[in-house]
Amino acid sequence: MTVTVPILRQGSALIASIQEDLCDSDILNLQSRILEDVIRYRANAVIVDVSAIGILDSFGTKTLIEIAHSVKLRGAKMIIVGIQPDVAISMVLLGLTLKDIPTALDLDHGLALIGET
């Protein structure tokens, strides 16, 4: 079963809202679609909303970091919003960090960070 994450446009920003647990190929698919859309719509920011997902393991985190770095090379900025408390604890214990990637509590805070509210 393939899950296609919807990517919405809000002003000059893209919002990808992950609605359910993604398998590795779904995450890779999201990665290529975000990069295509950043170019197609000349987006200057991408918000990835992970509030609906209950697990972010090493592959998911690594791919999010790769997306963020690629988006940055396109001159846009990526923010990850909505990491759930349990997910955050698991990530820290596993040794996963998002280093220099901005995060925000929820979508509203993310939009505020990029000046879209």
Partner: peptide, 30 residues
């Protein structure tokens, strides 16, 4: 990992521990 989370939930594991069990399974299965 969903099977693991469901089992952890059934056994009354705390929510962070449910996430840890699911994460461990995810890493090992991958």
């Amino acid at each position: 990992r969903q099977m693991g989370r469901a089992l952890a939930e059934d056994l009354g594991f705390s929510r962070p521990d449910q996430a840890l069990v699911a994460t461990a399974i995810s890493e090992l299965a991958r």
